[in-house]
Amino acid sequence: MAAVDANSVVAIGSRVRALREAMDLSLRDLAERSGVSAPMLSQVERGETSPTLQVAARIANGLDLRLSQLLRLDEDGAVTIVRADERRRGPTSVRGHRYEVLTPPLPGQRAELSRHVLDGGAATGGPGDPPVHEPGSRETAFVQSGRVVLHCDGAVYALEAGDTVTFDADLPHHFENPGPEEASLLAIVSAGLRRS
């Protein structure tokens, strides 16, 4: 199996690292997801080795990408499209919370858009859960359907379909659906410094 062009090794390595970090995966996590050993992944990320196309394809799969996306063969200028069947899905929750990440895992991306669906009585987390976003992050959520309640840093905010809320996402927070019907919301989390 042919190796990836040597001129692309460093670019691929830094891209793999950026994508892995954007997905909050350790080398070990990506190794488990891709079937490529952590030492090999480390060498690829540092540009010390050129992966075969087979290994690059396994790495891409571990990052929820097609090989062409990892190698940037299908990028056309500054536009990246995530098709409905290509969304990254979050782990299924026993709490009745399902979500999909709608933005692509691009290196250096400073914002992530996700869609959350809450069954009746379900929540995205609970009291005492640690903040899941980096310091300085801001979150804006738009309620698409149903009613949700935002619990943020000890305060409670009732939201209806069509309402939008923005808050410091590095504070303890979670959304819950108090009603019997399903509720959905779009959330965008952006990194950056909190305004004083």
Rank of each mutant, 00 (worst) to 15 (best):
S42R: 04
I81W: 12
R58I: 00
M40N: 09
G13N: 08
V4R: 11
V55Y: 10
L67Y: 03
A6H: 11
R88T: 06
R88M: 09
V16N: 05
S50K: 08
A31R: 07
R46L: 14
A22H: 10
S34I: 04
S14K: 05
L71D: 02
R20D: 12
R58E: 08
S14Q: 09
V79S: 15
A84C: 12
S37T: 11
L30Q: 01
I59N: 11
D76F: 04
M23S: 10
D64N: 10
D5Y: 10
L30D: 05
M40L: 15
D85S: 04
M23T: 03
L19W: 07
A84T: 13
E48C: 02
G13T: 06
V82E: 05
S34M: 08
A22S: 07
R20H: 12
R17W: 02
S8Y: 11
N7E: 15
D24Q: 10
R58F: 00
V9W: 14
I59H: 06
L41E: 12
A56P: 03
M40F: 13
A18F: 02
L25A: 03
R33H: 07
S42K: 09
G47N: 02
V9Q: 14
A31F: 11
T52M: 12
R87G: 07
P91T: 01
T80H: 11
M40Y: 12
S34H: 03
L65P: 01
D24F: 03
G47E: 01
P39W: 03
E45F: 10
V44M: 07
L63V: 01
L53I: 06
V79D: 14
S14C: 01
L71E: 02
M23I: 01
T92M: 13
V79H: 15
D24S: 12
T49N: 13
S34F: 05
D29H: 00
D76H: 07
S14Y: 00
R28S: 14
S50R: 04
D64L: 02
R83P: 00
L53N: 03
L25C: 04
L71M: 09
S68M: 06
I59K: 04
N7S: 14
L27M: 11
A22M: 09
L53C: 01
L73W: 09
S37L: 09
L41H: 09
V9T: 15
M23Q: 15
R83S: 08
T92F: 12
N61D: 15
L41S: 10
V79N: 12
A57N: 07
P51S: 05
G62H: 00
G62I: 00
A56G: 02
A60M: 04
L63T: 02
S68P: 00
D76R: 13
V16R: 04
L27I: 01
